[in-house]
Amino acid sequence: MYDVLAEVYDQLQDVDYEAFADYYEAIFQKFNCQPSLVLDLGCGTGNMTLAMARRGYEMIGLDCSVEMLEIAAQKARDQQKEILFLNQDMTTFELYGTVGAMICALDGVNYLTGDGQLEEMLQRLHCFLDPGGLLIFDVNTPYKFQKVLDGQTFLYDQDDIYCVWNNEYDAEEQICYFDLNIFLRDADGMYIRRDEFQEERAYSALELQECIERCGLECAGIFDHLSFLPPKTESERLFFVVRRPLSAAGGYADEKIF
């Protein structure tokens, strides 16, 4: 996944990463979390990782795509940021210790399409997140898959890139299929076609909340896009704030892992 898309990913994205970073910091303040070390799950080409690093957080970036991580690491070198990048899967990752917070931006959780993968990821979180620490993730909603993406074709036409993005949503399987045809212009002015196929799973807010709680975590908040407003029927993106609880006595549930 993303092996073909990695080289053009940044050119096709139109995301205000600083707005995401502002929102993460507002969540940290609202939920009394003061992390110094933050893990970026599904970091891709490192845009979100670097946005947080520029604000003084010690960052770890994790992604399953080597191609994405190579680009992220080069950006970090260019910006003189020391960031540990790990080529691991979100459902099986291993760290040397715990972190104060985790973020997962731009519907990374929707890419957990297999049965049990969401629970596996949350169980890893329980192992490597400080007690009282937060996971912040966002998801595309079932409404977006059904009403906005299903049956739609999007075109991206830039100087050296032409991309046709077809979407099809299977309501029974709760899977949205993305078929991307990417045309890249070479040095001779000829276009080379590259194809990529992706899929995302639609999770309801209730399904996510129940899975979070089954894993011994607390669903501390569910909010509409980049806000502290409650979800709406027509919300296209929701943000979840997940907390690893402290013990009932008010101390840590267990010791940090080092």
Rank of each mutant, 00 (worst) to 15 (best):
N47I: 00
F93H: 04
N87S: 11
Q74V: 14
K75D: 01
D78A: 13
R77H: 12
D78C: 07
A73G: 03
L86T: 06
N87P: 03
G42T: 10
V38K: 02
L69M: 00
A73C: 04
N47V: 05
R77G: 06
R77F: 08
A73H: 13
L37R: 15
F93A: 04
N47W: 01
G56K: 10
T49L: 04
E58R: 05
A72P: 06
A72T: 10
C33V: 13
L86H: 10
T45V: 05
D63G: 07
E82Y: 09
L37K: 14
E70Y: 04
G61W: 07
K75L: 08
S36K: 15
E94L: 13
Q80F: 04
I71K: 15
L50E: 12
C43K: 06
D40K: 07
G56L: 01
L62V: 11
P35W: 05
L62W: 13
C43G: 10
T92H: 11
T92G: 08
G44W: 09
M90Y: 06
L50S: 06
E94V: 14
G61P: 00
L86D: 07
S65W: 02
G46P: 11
M52A: 06
L86K: 15
M48L: 10
T49Y: 09
G42F: 10
A53G: 05
L39D: 03
Q80S: 12
S36C: 11
Q88P: 10
K81P: 00
L84D: 15
T92F: 06
L86Y: 09
C64V: 03
S36V: 14
E58D: 04
G61S: 01
T91E: 14
G42L: 05
P35L: 07
I71C: 06
A72R: 12
L84G: 07
S65I: 00
M52D: 00
D89W: 04
T45I: 10
R54C: 02
G56V: 03
T49D: 02
